[in-house]
């Protein structure tokens, strides 16, 4: 199975990189960019074939290492 994980900063956590990216977009002439939030995307190939087990494993990976729950949220998609 394949897991696709989005890790994003929790709302309210300062994102200076996102802010700098938004400024750069403005410099390029893109109008109307209210804000940018930068996150991470991970793809994991798993030997597990049961979607429920794969999801549980990936959730544990997120909580144990991939996301820092003090400042980040995560979302997991599991597919064949």
């Amino acid at each position: 199975m394949k897991a696709r994980i989005h890790i994003t900063l929790k709302p309210g956590v300062l994102d200076p990189q996102g802010k700098a990216i938004a400024n750069a977009l403005g410099n390029l002439g893109f109008q109307g960019v209210d804000s940018v939030r930068q996150g991470k995307f991970l793809e994991i190939d798993l030997a597990e074939s049961d979607p429920a087990k794969a999801r549980a494993d990936v959730n544990a990976m997120c909580e144990g290492l991939l996301a820092n729950l003090v400042i980040e949220d995560y979302a997991v998609e599991v597919s064949e």
Partner: peptide, 11 residues
Amino acid sequence: LPGAILRNAGL
């Protein structure tokens, strides 16, 4: 220790 340490505000 509690909390987290992020990228410097001024980058």
